[in-house]
């Protein structure tokens, strides 16, 4: 049996599910803030942020799309690095850490894509929420392997 390593308070789970529902059919994204210890990570807050892909020009400047025909805010998310730096700074100042990020997969299972893998970073928890026909369904969490070859599933529990 796998050990539960990520704990997410029910309130934060609700924030993520609501954000996924409201953003449908687009992808939503946000930052998971909390504490990391030897026994795992405990999220204290899920902070919704804007999907910068809605601002295609700025997003393409930061991370160009491979295909403008097949990539958009409906299947891509990007967090504004300025927003990320600001939240990271505030988090550090309050003695907490950015533990990872969440995003939704509209009309797609809560499994990391090759694109997720190619753009992932080790250590962070990547929480993925599947939103089918506008309804939030399965939510999973993943951690990129250190050699970037794929993700390991990270069991999570609400509390």
């Amino acid at each position: 049996m796998s050990k539960v390593v990520l704990r997410i308070p029910n309130g934060a789970v609700e924030v993520i599910r609501k954000h996924g529902k409201e953003s449908y059919p687009n992808e939503c994204c946000g930052i998971l803030v909390g504490k990391a210890g030897d026994s795992g990570k405990e999220v204290l807050q899920a902070v919704p942020v804007a999907n910068l892909r809605l601002n295609a020009e700025e997003a393409d400047r930061l991370l160009p799309r491979e295909s403008v025909d097949f990539e958009s805010e409906r299947n891509r998310f990007l967090i504004d690095p300025k927003e990320q730096i600001r939240i990271e700074r505030e988090t550090r100042e309050s003695g907490l850490e950015v533990l990872g990020y969440y995003h939704s997969h509209p009309d797609h299972p809560a499994r990391p894509s090759n694109y997720d893998r190619d753009h992932g970073w080790p250590w962070y928890s990547y929480v993925i929420l599947s939103v089918i026909q506008g309804n939030p369904e399965e939510m999973t969490s993943w951690v990129l392997k250190d050699d970037r070859s794929g993700f390991d599933s990270e069991p999570w529990t609400g509390f």
């Binding site: 994204c29 097949f70 299947n75 998310f77 990007l78 797609h108 694109y115 997720d116 753009h119």
Partner: peptide
């Protein structure tokens, strides 16, 4: 060094 945080489901051919 600031990691870009990006991802998303696979690109379907019917997108857009």
């Amino acid at each position: 060094i600031v990691p870009s945080i990006a991802g998303g489901r696979p690109a379907p051919s019917f997108c857009r």
